[in-house]
């Protein structure tokens, strides 16, 4: 108990935990939209596609400043998203194939650029890769401020376009017929999701970012059928797993933060899927057994075939 108390007062812990909590909250909110649109793997794709942008930003400016690298990542993430959207729009290729293709090609391009940079004399490119693969313990206070500012902007946009997004994700055809610019809404929503992913790169890294986007919303989805409750719950789950993941990783020797967060949020998903009232598996099984008993008692000795 005392260790936890000391930990809470620790400055580095506060920074990292706050950063992870903000990230969890943001990805919880925007992830809900991605999951409901069945585009939850966008996170995985965009986070891989950020690599060439990071390397290009470094080549062009020579700086390893977080904001510069993030801007590069953002641009290449957005480009990848645009590619995916237009491939799906203009051909019969499905979203998942387009995503897998664009993601792997961008990542390959990133590798090519990375090996190219390594040959430039005196270029100190070390750390670029770590940037992509993420390391929450290196979060600084100014990174957290940066995350907070982006977070406020994204949340404000979400509130502002709440009605439109809601209509668009549940019935895009209807939205179109009412005269809402569906394509633009799609782009805006994708851009916002990409923003969150790029912010998250630094904290949990490229591969685990997709979990941060999907898991909180999937867990929240089990508890409610209302969008706003789902979004709030999802933000809560995200933030909680961010804080507890950081705590677990600080208290245990050699436990990386990103994976710890992912394991905790995955546990929340499993608990939700099993025990959520109404939808959960446990309740479903109990309900089915009750029904079986009922049918049996009414139908005499006969064994009632399962339907």
């Amino acid at each position: 108990m005392e260790t936890i108390f000391y930990l809470l007062k620790d400055y580095t812990f506060q920074t990292v935990a706050l950063g992870s909590a903000i990230l969890g909250l943001l990805s919880g909110v925007l992830g809900s939209f991605a999951v409901l649109r069945k585009q939850s793997l966008l996170g995985d794709g965009v986070s891989h596609a950020a690599l060439p942008g990071v390397v290009m930003a470094f080549v062009m400016t020579g700086s390893k400043n977080t904001e510069v690298l993030l801007l590069g990542a953002l641009i290449s993430g957005l480009m990848a998203t645009l590619f995916i959207i237009s491939i799906v729009k203009h051909s019969r290729i499905k979203f998942d194939s387009a995503l897998a293709l664009v993601m792997s090609v961008f990542f390959g391009l990133g590798l090519v650029l990375l090996t190219y940079v390594q040959k430039i004399p005196n270029s100190n490119q070390a750390g670029l890769k770590r940037f992509i693969f993420g390391q929450a313990s290196t979060l600084l206070q100014r990174d957290v401020y940066f995350m907070a500012i982006c977070g406020v902007i994204l949340l404000a946009l979400t509130l502002l376009f709440w009605k439109e997004f809601k209509l668009y994700i549940f019935d895009s055809e209807y939205a179109k017929s009412l005269g809402f610019p569906a394509h633009k809404l799609n782009l805006l929503l994708s851009f916002m999701i990409v923003m969150v992913i790029i912010i998250g790169l630094q904290t949990v890294g490229v591969i685990l970012m997709s979990a941060m986007l999907i898991a909180p919303s999937v867990a929240a989805r089990q508890w409610t059928n209302k969008l706003w409750i789902m979004v709030v719950l999802s933000a809560l789950f995200g933030a909680i797993s961010g804080i507890f993941g950081t705590m677990a990783s600080s208290l245990t020797a050699k436990l990386p933060t990103g994976p710890a967060i992912v394991v905790i949020i995955s546990c929340i998903v499993i608990i939700s899927v099993l025990f959520a009232p109404g939808r959960g598996i446990v309740q479903k099984i109990a309900h089915r057994n009750n029904l079986k008993q009922l049918l049996k008692s009414e139908g005499g000795d006969r064994n009632v075939p399962t339907i």
């Binding site: 939850s40 591969i207 685990l208 999937v218 436990l255 990386p256 710890a260 992912v262 394991v263």
Partner: peptide, 25 residues
């Protein structure tokens, strides 16, 4: 309870995280 893409996105980061934790530990 969840769509196919979401199931993929839940399973592989979890297994991958476990692998990373095992390696670093």
């Amino acid at each position: 309870l969840l769509s196919e893409d979401a199931s993929i996105g839940i399973v592989f980061p979890l297994l991958f995280s476990i692998a990373i934790i095992l390696i670093t530990k």
